[in-house]
Amino acid sequence: MMRHSDLSSLIRLNIGGKKFCTTIDTLTCREPDSMLAAMFSGRHTVCQDAEKGYVFVDRDGKQFRHILNWLRDGVVPTLTDSDYSELIREAEYYQLLGLIEGINSILNKRKDDEDSCAELTRTDIIKCIQSERVRFRGIDLSGLDLSKLDLSFVDFSFACLKNVFFSRANLHCAKFRDVDAEGSIFHNATLRECEFTGANLRGALLAGANLQSANLQDACLIGCSFCGANLRSAHLQNADLTDANLEGANLEGANLKVKERKLPGFS
C-alpha cells in the first residue's frame, strides 16, 4: 500500500491489462468528484504492484484511453453509437458525469441531424406540459433531451423512451408503466412516487435520483446504476436487479422481495 505523499506526479496504470502513464493532475482536476479523483487525491490509499510500479484497475483498457483524453483536454471523442455505449458504461463506473453528459449531447444532436424517429421534439414537449393534464402514452420519444424540465404528473405509460436524457428533470408522480426506457439517463432527477411497473430500464443511469416511494414492481433494472440514489420506501417486488449498482443508495424501508433472484450486495 502507498499513500499520496509517496507518489510522484507521474502515475502508471494497468487497466484490464493495458498500460498507461499519466499524472495526478490529469486524474483529479477536470472531474474532481469522480472515483479517479478520489483514488489519487490523497484521501484514499491505492494498491500498487511493488515490482512493476503499476496501479491495477480491473476495467476495459480499450475505452480508458478515451477517458484519459477527456480528462486531459475535455473533448468528447467521435465514436460509433455502440462504442459510445461502452464508453458511457466505463464513465459511469469512474463517475465521470461531465463525460456522460457530453456523450449524450452528441448522441442527441446526431439523432436530430439524422431526423430521428421521435414523434415530438423538445419544443413540442415544452408546449404540451403547459396544459393541465399531459399524456404521452405510447408515443416514441427516443433520444430526446428532456433534462431539467418540469414533467411532474406526466403520463408516459407504454411510450418508447430509449436513450432519453431526463437529467435533473422534475418527474414527481410521473407514470412510466410498461415503458421502454433502455439506456435513459435519470441522473439527479426527481422521481418521487413515480410508477415504473413493468418498465424496461435496462442499463439506465439513475445515480443521485430521488426515487422515494417509487413503484418499480416487475421492472427490468438489469445493469442500472442507482449510485447514491434515494430508494426509501420504494417498491421493488419481483424487479430484476441483475448487475445493478446500488452503491451508496438509501434503501431504508424499501420492499426488496425479489422472486428467484438474489439482490446484489444482499444475502
Rank of each mutant, 00 (worst) to 15 (best):
K127V: 04
V76W: 00
Q63V: 02
L99A: 07
L120T: 05
L97Q: 04
R65A: 14
Q63L: 14
A118H: 06
C128M: 14
V76K: 00
L97P: 00
I106H: 13
D112W: 01
E114M: 10
E51M: 08
P77K: 04
D124H: 10
D83V: 12
D115R: 15
Q48V: 15
G74S: 07
Y94S: 00
P77N: 05
G102T: 05
G98V: 03
A50M: 05
A118Q: 06
V75N: 08
E51T: 10
L120M: 13
I67P: 00
Q48L: 15
S85D: 14
F136G: 10
F56T: 13
W70I: 02
G74N: 05
P77Q: 03
Q48R: 15
T78N: 13
I129H: 08
S105A: 12
G74F: 03
E132D: 14
F136D: 06
Y54H: 08
V134K: 06
D58H: 09
D81F: 04
Q130H: 11
R72D: 06
I126D: 03
E114W: 05
R122F: 05
D49F: 04
V76Y: 01
C117L: 14
W70V: 04
K52L: 10
S131E: 14
C128K: 13
G61D: 02
L120D: 05
E86S: 12
W70K: 01
G53V: 11
G61F: 02
G102M: 02
S85M: 08
F64D: 03
C117G: 10
R65S: 15
R72S: 06
R72Q: 09
Y93W: 10
L96Q: 03
H66Y: 15
S131R: 09
L120C: 08
H66L: 09
Q130R: 12
C128F: 07
E92L: 07
P77Y: 05
E86R: 12
F56W: 05
G102K: 02
R89D: 14
E92Y: 02
H66I: 06
H66A: 05
E51C: 04
H66G: 06
T80I: 02
S82I: 08
L79N: 07
F56L: 03
V75K: 12
K52V: 07
T80S: 14
K52A: 10
I129T: 14
D49R: 02
V76S: 00
L120Y: 13
F136R: 05
Y84D: 10
H66T: 07
V76P: 00
E86Q: 12
D112E: 12
T123P: 01
A118C: 11
S85P: 00
N69E: 14
D73W: 09
R89F: 11
